[in-house]
Amino acid sequence: MLVAVGGGEAPAYTRSGLDWSSRFPSILSEARKLKVRSALIDGEAVVVMRKEDLTSRRFKMH
């Protein structure tokens, strides 16, 4: 995930260029608070799940 901080904005993009900002609101809220003029933050986002959730029908990767 690439977060582009600047001008009061902080959208998040996937490696293929998809805008995933809506999927990471808490991360992006914190990124907007950074005291920088601009920044590109390259990182990984992970989801920690319980073992029971991995086998449930409710679990579905997007």
Results as ranks from 00 to 15, higher is better:
M1D: 06
M1Q: 06
M1Y: 13
L2Y: 12
L2T: 12
L2R: 14
A4M: 13
A4E: 15
A4P: 01
V5H: 05
G6H: 03
G6D: 01
E9H: 09
A10P: 04
A10N: 01
A12Q: 04
A12M: 07
Y13L: 05
T14K: 07
R15L: 13
S16T: 10
G17Q: 04
G17E: 06
D19T: 03
D19P: 00
S21K: 02
S21T: 08
S22D: 11
S22A: 11
R23A: 11
R23V: 11
R23E: 09
P25S: 02
P25V: 02
P25G: 01
S26K: 08
I27E: 06
I27H: 06
L28N: 01
L28F: 01
S29G: 14
S29T: 08
E30G: 07
A31S: 04
R32S: 04
L34R: 02
K35W: 08
K35G: 02
V36S: 04
V36Q: 02
S38W: 14
S38R: 15
S38H: 14
S38T: 12
A39Q: 02
L40I: 11
L40N: 12
L40S: 14
L40M: 14
I41R: 01
D42H: 11
G43A: 06
G43N: 00
E44I: 10
V46Y: 15
V47F: 09
V47W: 09
V48F: 15
V48G: 07
V48Q: 13
V48M: 13
M49G: 08
K51C: 05
E52L: 06
D53V: 07
D53S: 07
D53R: 06
L54N: 07
L54E: 14
L54R: 13
L54T: 09
T55N: 12
T55V: 12
T55K: 10
T55S: 12
T55Y: 09
T55I: 07
R57M: 14
R57N: 09
R58E: 11
R58N: 08
K60I: 15
K60E: 15
H62N: 12
H62G: 15
H62M: 08
